[in-house]
Amino acid sequence: MTGLKLFSRRILPQLVTLAVVVGLISIMFPGFFEISIANGRLYGSPIDILNRGAPVALLAIGMTLVIATGGIDLSVGAVMAICGAMAAWGITEGYGLGLTLLMALAAGLACGLWNGLLVAVLGIQPIVATLILMVAGRGIAQLITEGAILTFNHEGLIFFGSGSLFTIPTPIIIAIVTGALVTLIVRRSALGMLIEAIGINLRASTLAGVNTRVLLIAVYMASGLCAALAGVIAAADIRGADANNAGLWLELDAILAVVIGGTSLLGGRFSLIASLIGALIIQAVNTGILLSGFPPEFNLIIKAGIILIILVLQSPTIRTMVIFLSPAPVSQADTEKQAVNQ
């Protein structure tokens, strides 16, 4: 019971932020909550937010784990491009859906392995290590697509981008299932705690007997796998692999989602659900701007303004100030009284 209470207190700020952003959009655009069914799948702006937010949500899952270890993965956008290109190439070469997906996911794992080796074995700083693949990755993707947008018409692959299961668009299902699986794995075992231990003190964890090297590599591989899923979705969505633009700057959105979710960039405690809500907040802002009909020159300013407000409200200094300035600090007095009574 207390665990549930703690958990809801943990994700409360993110939920409130999401509610406020969605509320603002529905004031500006009254038809926001209308959901219907078109072509056998749910159709409406809230569905758009979930559907468009799925790639960033997937990236945020991997990114949360990486950031919890005190690292960062700048390469996920480029890995998306590589895996999308791999999927498009595989399907146009006629390898069949199963093998194609396997190749795309394997490419993501390989990219993660590369990052993991640089960080865990060679001891290169994560921001530098993953920068290498961030820069080189698009080149690799371009080699696969030979510089053009590689288009395909394979219904099976397209299903992962614009198909639906029980009227729910596939990307949403993939993101939710991945999120749930990863949460189960890290929270039902000691893995989550070990990842947090690495983030808090790498050397102490090693001395305490944690196999930090293997765990670090595994975390980067998980991030690569998440990026591969996002890359397949992005390519399937437009029925083509665009090496130049697939996942462009999404690594920054993913990091932002984790930060909005309240996980510290210094590593340590993390919350996957809060990161997922963070990803939804970012996409809600994006979709809201598009629905609002403002001229495009304002897009980035509005987005930056909203993010700034969210982060300022989350800042510890502001929180202390709010508590300090609030007229009746009842709760604080109560706890003191309790302490005295005990």
Binding site: F29, R52, G240, D242, N245, L290, G293, P296
Partner: peptide, 26 residues
């Protein structure tokens, strides 16, 4: 009636068009 940037890419073109469709009575 509406003008937004799609950054010259397919992905953004699709995403922005989706929002146009919702904003303009389906």
């Amino acid at each position: 009636i509406r003008s937004q940037t799609g950054d010259f890419t397919r992905t953004k073109g699709k995403e922005v068009m989706e929002s146009f469709l919702k904003a303009e009575d389906g």
